[in-house]
Design a protein around this nucleic acid. Structure first.
Lengths: 386, 386
DNA sequence: GATATTTTTCTTGTTATGAGAATAATTGAT
DNA sequence: ATCAATTATTCTCATAACAAGAAAAATATC
């Protein structure tokens, strides 16, 4: 472990403190992080010189003594861009270094690998020019629906049909900013930690559903990637012995019970009228279609069983459910709660809060922003922080 | 993060390298850890002055140049003691700082909390005098069958009937050496990492069975304790919907299918002749008792299902099974393999090796030694390393 | 305006790492 | 036997970072 690592570690901790809690004072940072006041002062000075952080007088406190200076991430400090590639759309968000979105848009996508790098490069340029701020683009984060190696190779993305694509190299060649790519589930979990309901929570389990079911293990303040980077594929937890077949080849996985295609398939089988989208499913549920509500309730029960296992394994303070699941909260929650009550270790489940997060619905595509922000200011690679 | 932390981190890394690979040279340590040669030299010199490490000429290599010095943990560097408290026995091991046992013994125990501190203090004194080495007792590690908080309070130990016992304070008062207490499952996992089949493996899942089923998540080179220290209670993974009742109050946990009492109960129910011990079960299985073999095969299937879920969650390179399970390998393995084949994500299970470890049978009570060694040389609290 | 109080910065000291030169200890060739 | 080549370890010195305490800055109250 090197000396400059300490500096970067401390700088990172201070930066995120300021991002999470704008207008903190140096004194508060010292109190929260335990870093020495001299060090905080020195790092803040560097930030300030680099234009990353701004100091502003804070409203009078009616207390004697020198008033504290409020510290905020400078809006002019630079831009980061989040890109989210899905089966039929590509979403873009431009944000300042504090992660607050400046502009966003989505474009239709045919899913073809051919020419996607140039397409994304154009999209990034456009969203940057739209956002109305000047400044360097410090990083682009790309969230992908598949498994990636640590070297930035997309091993397999079923919904896109891509396989063995060196995405980081490919997009790096087309973009002139550092590229950070990651699995969509892990990226979304990172976004929850940075901007969402899990903000500043060091341990939580994240699950999301969409065209598949993904997730991430957020442990000790970071995504757990495991020995080969594949950890956290929570869509393939076994929930029903000899249950439905999953695209992964096994049977009984959580994914076919909770994903949009899985739900649509089941509803179609029972009613002869297969919903065309998740929105469609929600509309029918909203119109009190008994079959749809029943299918969702069953999905909730299965989900609750999976969560129970996760609670017993991790004893997490928080389990966060995102993606399509979030909008289906009214139909899922009762069954989830029932299952937890029945299946989870009581002394553990009392410590666990299960929440449905709206983050990805309210401001979508933040996964890529989280990847970029983590890449740009995090403890690895291209130092923006001193 | 402080500066002395780096030093301790590096010292710890070097110490464990020497322990794991006795007779390494400084040059090899540099190659393996990436720490600078100056730093390695400086730390080795400190170790040498403290009497922790010995340098010895290594057999000639027939290569030109100055021969390397072999580095080993000095056998005279000090003693650590491992204590393992179970329902009916207390086991003791004295070991040098390299962790190699010098002497061990077990004594009968009535399970009473009253007077146990003095009993253990006497046992520690005896095992130390028996071991035939002089030197300070640098730490005592106590492995306990229950859940402990980070503050060293034993929340609940069902098999002992203890509840809310401040074990670290209690044993510290009776012993004049630093006391490190821990959950038996986590301690055993640590022992596997330090001395057993998982040596130097940074990520693995450990499961053991005995009077209950416990385990630990060994992630990124350390036990994952979770936000409140209770993570890793793998005996309570749900495996059978609406299954057998568990002592934890829930139903369908792994524990009642795999623990000695659970197996004995089931065998007793089926044959009218309840085995008195796990040894008894093994003897009947060895005599080809079909019912016993069948019960074990079913236990293996249930275990395999739990392992499949763990594989899909963690994608670990190694799953290690210890305790009673290890001696039942011939009866469990086929069913475990079948379940894995059927249930685990194929692209993940190919990366996972499932092993049955004999460590706890061959040299028992090492859990306490691992706790003590980790406590004494690890990155927290009482520095023995510089 | 003086004093107390609170926040931030500066000064000085200590400890680590890290690059490169120097030293030590051996083999093989002359 | 001596010297060159080679390899392993230690030493020297420069630089970076933290840490404790003094000093300075900025305000409220009396």
């Amino acid at each position: 472990m090197s000396k400059s690592y300490i500096r970067h570690f401390n700088a990172n901790a201070i930066f995120h403190r300021i991002r999470i809690e704008p207008n903190v004072s140096q004194r508060d940072i010292v109190a929260r992080t335990g870093i020495d006041k001299s060090v905080v002062s020195s790092i803040i000075n560097q930030f300030s010189e680099l234009g990353l952080v701004e100091r502003s007088p804070v409203a009078t406190s009616n207390k004697p003594g020198r008033p504290m200076e409020g510290l905020t991430i400078s809006p002019e400090s630079g831009l980061i861009v989040g890109v989210q590639i899905e089966a039929d759309t590509i979403g873009y968000v431009a944000a300042a270094l504090d992660g607050i979105p400046l502009s966003s848009r989505a474009q239709a996508f045919n899913g073809k690998l051919d020419g996607v790098a140039d397409l994304v490069a154009r999209g990034v340029r456009e969203i940057v020019s739209e956002c109305g701020r000047t400044g360097d683009t410090l990083g682009v984060g790309i969230s992908l629906p598949g498994l990636l190696t640590d070297e930035g190779v997309l091993l397999h993305a079923p919904v896109l049909g891509w396989r063995g694509v060196p995405v980081v190299d490919m997009f790096s060649a087309a973009l002139d900013a550092p590229v950070f790519a990651g699995n969509d589930g892990k990226a979304a979990a990172m976004a929850e930690y940075m901007f969402g309901e899990c903000i500043d929570t060091k341990d939580f389990i994240y699950l999301f559903s969409g065209s598949g079911v993904g997730g991430a293990l957020f442990l000790d303040g970071d995504i757990y990637r495991g020995a080969s980077g594949l950890a956290g594929e929570l869509g393939h937890i076994k929930v029903v012995p000899q249950g439905r077949y999953c695209s992964c080849g096994a049977s009984g996985c959580l994914s076919p019970y909770l994903s949009e295609p899985g739900l649509a398939e089941e509803i179609g089988r029972l009613t002869g009228n297969r919903p065309s989208s998740f929105k469609d499913i929600m509309q029918r549920a909203g119109a009190n279609d008994e079959v749809v509500v029943g299918v969702l309730d069953n999905a909730g029960a299965v989900l609750g069983s999976a969560i129970s296992s996760l609670v017993n394994i991790f004893n997490p303070p928080l389990v966060c459910l995102g993606g399509d699941m979030a909008s289906a909260e009214p139909y899922l929650r009762p069954a989830v709660e029932r299952a937890l009550q029945r299946l989870a270790h009581p002394s553990m489940s009392v410590q666990t809060k299960v929440i449905f997060s709206q983050l990805s619905t309210v401001s979508p595509f933040l996964g890529g922003v989280a990847l970029a922000l983590d890449g740009v200011t995090g403890l690895d690679s291209p130092h923006v922080l001193p």
